[in-house]
Design a binder for these strands. Structure first.
Length: 281
DNA sequence: ATGGCAGAAGCATTCTGA
C-alpha cells in the first residue's frame, strides 16, 4: 500500500499538478497540507473521478488538510477531537485547521500540518510548541487503544542537522532548534519511526526548498516533511521516497511529496492468524 | 539584519508562510 504526504501550498493552484502526480505515482492514500480553501470550495470531483474518496478540513486562505484515499476511511476526526477529558485544552487550536485523522485498512492515518513558528522569539513559536504538545497527547490517546499509527505531514522541523543543507547557519534557529526537536521527539516517544531514515542515513535529501534565492536550483533544501510509522509496522516497510521532480514544475509547490510502500498483505496475515480469512488488498 | 518568492484576498497592498 502506497501512502504519501504533500504540502501543496494551495489545492486550487496546484490541482493539475496533483492529478498528474497521482496518475504517475498511484498512491492508495495521499495526505495534503496547506490546501488553503474552505470545504465548500474544495475540488472534490477530480479526485472522485480517479476513484478516490476525499475527507477535508479546510479554512479560508490559510492551513487546511485533506485525506485522499482509494479505500473509504472510517472514524474521520477533524482537529484534536477525541480527547474527551481535555477538549478544553484543545479549544484554542480549533481556529486553525491543521489536523485530520482516519482509520484506513487497519491503520490510524494522522495528517498534520505543524505550525511554522516564525522565529524563536515569536508568539507563533509558543503556539507551535503548544500545538506539538497537544499532538503528543492526541497520539498518546490513539496508542492507548493499541492502534497501528501512520503519522505524516509537514512538520516544519528538521529532526537532525543531517536534514539541513547548511546546519552551521541554521542550527538553533526556527525549524532547527532543540526546543522544537524535543517537542517532536515527545510526540514520537520512541514508538514512531522516521520511515525515511530506515533506508537513508546520509545528508543531502530534502523535501522543501525556499521559493527565494534560487534555492531549488542550488539544491539548498530542508527535510521537514515526514512519515512516521508505529514500530510494529517497520518490518512491513518496503521503501520511503522523496519525489523531488514536481518541485521542478512550472509554478510548483515549495514542498515535494514523500511516499512509503507498506506491505500490508503480511500485516493482515499477522493480525488475522486466529481465523482463516485472507484479506486481499 | 534584511530581503528575496509565492498564494489569498481583492484590486493596492497586506498578511502569512518557511
Amino acid at each position: 500500500m502506497l501512502i504519501a504526504t504533500w504540502n501543496v501550498n494551495s489545492i486550487r493552484t496546484r490541482l493539475s499538478q496533483i492529478l498528474d502526480w497521482i496518475n504517475q505515482s498511484n498512491p492508495d492514500i495521499l495526505c495534503l497540507q496547506e490546501t488553503k480553501v474552505m470545504d465548500e470550495s474544495f475540488p472534490v470531483e477530480p479526485f472522485e473521478k480517479l476513484g478516490y474518496s476525499v475527507e477535508i478540513y479546510g479554512q479560508k486562505s490559510y492551513n487546511g488538510v485533506a485525506i485522499i484515499s482509494k479505500i473509504k476511511p472510517d472514524n474521520v476526526k477533524k482537529g484534536f477531537y477525541g480527547c474527551k477529558d481535555t477538549d478544553q485544552i484543545f479549544e484554542i487550536f480549533q481556529d486553525q485547521k491543521r489536523l485530520i485523522s482516519a482509520d484506513i485498512n487497519g491503520i490510524k492515518i494522522v495528517n498534520a500540518y505543524v505550525p511554522n513558528g516564525s522565529s524563536l522569539e515569536s508568539d507563533k513559536f509558543e503556539y507551535k510548541i503548544n500545538w506539538l504538545n497537544s499532538l503528543a497527547f492526541f497520539i498518546d490517546e490513539q496508542m492507548k487503544t493499541g492502534e497501528l499509527i501512520c503519522l505524516m505531514g509537514d512538520f516544519n522541523i528538521a529532526p537532525s542537522n543531517l536534514d539541513i543543507h547548511d546546519p552551521q547557519k541554521y542550527e538553533g534557529r526556527i525549524m532547527a532548534s532543540e526546543t522544537e526537536r524535543n517537542a517532536l521527539n515527545n510526540v514520537l516517544k520512541g514508538k514512531l519511526i522516521d520511515s525515511f531514515r530506515i533506508f537513508e542515513k546520509n545528508t543531502g535529501h530534502w523535501s522543501w526548498w525556499d521559493y527565494r534565492n534560487n534555492a531549488y536550483e542550488l539544491n539548498k533544501g530542508w527535510r521537514i516533511d515526514h512519515i512516521y510509522i508505529s514500530k510494529e509496522l517497520s518490518s512491513k516497510l518496503k521503501s520511503c521516497v522523496i519525489d523531488s521532480v514536481p518541485r521542478a514544475n512550472l509554478r510548483p509547490s515549495d514542498h515535494a511529496p514523500v511516499m512509503i510502500d507498506l506491505n500490508l498483505n503480511d500485516l493482515n496475515l499477522d493480525l488475522s492468524k486466529d481465523d482463516d480469512i485472507f484479506f486481499e488488498i
